[in-house]
Amino acid sequence: MSDDSLHNTEHERTTTETDKEDSSRAVAVKDLWLTYADGTEAVQGLSLAIERGEFFGFLGPNGAGKTTTIKILATLLEPTRGSVTVNGFDVAKERTAVRGSIGYMPQETSVDEELTARENLRFACGAYGVPRGDRDDRIAELLELIDLADVADTPAAQFSGGMKKRLDAATALVHDPQLVFLDEPTTGLDPKARNRLWDYFQRINDAGTTIFLTTQYLEEADALCDRLSVIRDGSIVADGSPKELKRRVGGETLKLEIESGSDVVDRACKISRQSDLFEADATVETTGETVRITTRRAREQGSKLLVKLQESDITVTGFDIEETTLDDVFLAIADESVAELEGGHA
């Protein structure tokens, strides 16, 4: 090797330091823009980094740009601007390599209804170049996993929606992809079918597969995801674990039912406000005989508050702690209290 080429290699090494980091990531998106032919700016300056092995949730209201983003990552749409690598491959320049390393389960169920479950899987094995000798075992294993082994030779047209979804998911996984994109995989399923799919996704994630999930069901994201990003109007507005996001929105709500007249309720309210039990930005509201205190310290301080109220001869008839759900996070984001969320993050 000549000195020149050595020199060049070293030069590249220093300039591509960040690229190297990205190449070890499952997904690395930097300043991604996508403008449709009709001028709609579906994605506006989006950046994302997903580590290998993560169970990543991508949330956002309808039309926020979730599906557009997932289609870019899955090589179905070309970005207008920005750099996108998936499993270390550039989605624009190394399409085939990206395609071979991912599984993609689109929003609409996509199975060939004229073919049986087994034939659908066999086609997928061929399409993803699974070695011939491994195909039968792989298909049997997947049929078992999705509970379709007993109807393996029935045409998919006769399957229920849930069965088709499970088959669809399995066809995206025949090649043990390093990364799977699941675009609203449980929409329209009954709770039982949904739980089964959840269990299945959890198992592949435990086995090391990175999962990129979009969903409208916040309990789904809460139950499955290690980390969430919330997208609105084509860019990320919040990012963190489900727990962090919930904490940022405002912790828990302490709910007290107070016996008898409104003056007692007012007094209870006053005590709750004046005591040093809760942080300064905790809020106290009353509706009828109920006092609601939104605080991050509901669990630690709840019983102390009860003692204080008892000392003032106020009888508490009901006591409950309501946790913040992702719905609250979602509503807060829809409510444009974004600055606050991002502030918390920084």
Partner: peptide, 11 residues
């Protein structure tokens, strides 16, 4: 049926 897209996204 989406099989077109599904086929496109394979290698």
């Amino acid at each position: 049926s989406g099989m077109f897209e599904k086929t496109v996204v394979t290698p």
